[in-house]
């Protein structure tokens, strides 16, 4: 793998993470538990889709094959998507969506903070632009962790169930492969080992306050970063790509 190929894949992973989670949050539109939270979730969805666009545009420039951001979003199959498995998991109930969001927000914040000092000027600039949005995302999901964890017996139970289910996808956040290692060596990418340590410390501290438990990680689902997905991604893409697949080249 050349450095250029690695950088393209690295960028697409970041793009797909933002795009798929943004799409999932968008599914809450019109279904939120209250109007105000419906808007909060769709605001976060729009932040993420905006970030995804920045990465896709950069990917198009890197690949220099005459593609646009839309080609990446609308014309790739699941095997060519590189998002983390956690992010394609279904919305479930509100607790599932909050836990998924919180797990990623803490990771995302630590990751972008490190990416701001990337040697790659464009990635550093996107990180810097995104960090304010993500600071708010983690405040929003963190507040809900506390409210629902330390809420009623029922809300605590629902949160703990969601944590136990989604925790099996957390390990993948910190797994490094050939692409990551090459990018770290080039001072472009982020070393995930210190991020994992910091993430675990923050989440454990917060969970203790919220009367929740982070189960010990003995095993993790993995493969999303390499293009091997759970069944859910196919459904997301069918929904997301329907229009461009059915009416190729359709525009407003």
């Amino acid at each position: 793998m050349t450095k250029k190929e690695a950088l393209l894949k690295y960028t697409l992973r970041l793009a797909d993470n933002a795009s798929i989670l943004g799409h999932r949050l968008g599914e809450w539109c019109g279904h939120g538990p209250v109007l105000e939270q419906d808007i909060a979730m769709t605001n976060i969805a729009l932040d993420l889709i905006g970030q995804a666009r920045n990465y896709y545009q950069y990917a198009a420039k890197l690949e220099a094959a005459g593609k646009t951001e839309d080609d990446y979003a609308y014309l790739r199959d699941p095997l060519d998507y590189y998002n983390l498995l956690l992010l394609e998991q279904p919305n479930g109930n509100f607790a599932h969506s909050i836990v998924r969001q919180y797990f990623f927000d803490i990771f995302h914040y630590l990751f972008l903070t490190a990416l701001m000092s990337s040697k790659d000027k464009q990635l550093a600039a996107i990180a810097e632009k995104s960090i304010k949005e993500v600071t708010y995302h983690k405040k929003w999901s963190g507040d809900w962790i506390l409210r629902l964890g330390d809420g009623t017996e029922l809300s605590n139970e629902k949160m703990q169930t969601a944590i136990n289910v989604l925790q099996t996808y957390v390990g993948e956040l910190f797994l490094m492969d050939e692409v990551d290692e090459m990018m770290v060596k080039e001072n472009i990418g982020v070393d995930l080992a210190p991020i994992k340590e910091e993430w675990t410390r923050i989440v454990q501290e917060h969970f203790t306050e919220a009367k929740l438990k982070l189960p010990d990680a003995t095993w993790t689902q993995k493969g999303g970063k390499q293009g091997y997905h759970s069944e859910h991604l196919g459904y997301i893409l069918a929904d997301m790509q329907y229009l461009q697949r059915t009416y190729p080249g359709a525009v407003w």
Binding site: L35, A40, D143
Partner: peptide, 17 residues
């Protein structure tokens, strides 16, 4: 106006709405 459980949430909701 909007609904919220407490003042903190009201500020956040107001920010979003």
């Amino acid at each position: 106006s909007l609904h919220a459980a407490d003042a903190e949430m009201a500020i956040e909701n107001a920010r979003d709405v």
